[in-house]
Nucleic acid binder design. Sequence first.
DNA 1: CCACGGATTGGCT
DNA 2: GCCAATCCGTGGA
Length: 204
Amino acid sequence: MTINLSIKKLKKSFYRKEVVVVARELLGKVLVKSNGKENLAGKIVEVEAYHGDIDEAAHSYGGITERNEIMFEAGGYLYVYFTYGAHHCCNVVTGKKGQGTAVLIRAVEPVFGLERMIKNRFGRKLKNEKEIFNLTSGPGKVCQAFKLDRSHSGTDLTGDKIFILDGVKIKSKDIGISKRIGITRSVDLPWRFFIKDNPYLSRK
DNA sequence: CCACGGATTGGCT
DNA sequence: GCCAATCCGTGGA
């Protein structure tokens, strides 16, 4: 009998599709950061889609700037931005060159490198068992745990430092849909997707 | 050059 | 539940 471990790295073709399709398919996939120091992995459990043309909440709405330039590349790159004077958020660029579409990774379920993530995020050991659910349950938290900042923006996701592995296919009935969180424009687009009942979500 | 506000988080009421 | 913290990207003067 063969065992399909489904640990193949996602290729450019995976990312170069319509952003909402990629957003849903990213659920259950595994974000990996791998360098000499850190070997971290987390299953993606919550995402949001952003669309440059019709979405006033997207950084790419309004055209290319120095910050969002990478969003306009063809899919398969990382876009990391800094906000509120304190937090980084990481996105997966999707679609064709010039579209300006990306998927925000809002929460992951820690899979590998827990000790390192805890150190990166809290600088100490966990106070209690419940704190594990505060480790990567938000876009700023994911970047802190994975130590991702603007220097990682533009990273090729088919390289060997930061990439995403194929994972469990999430069934439609197990995917929750809602409006996006924390935005003030285009607020009604139902483009937040999450794995229902997963304990690592930023919200229910 | 300057002013405004943000794809958040955590602490306090 | 409410709100301050805190930098910097963006747009207008």
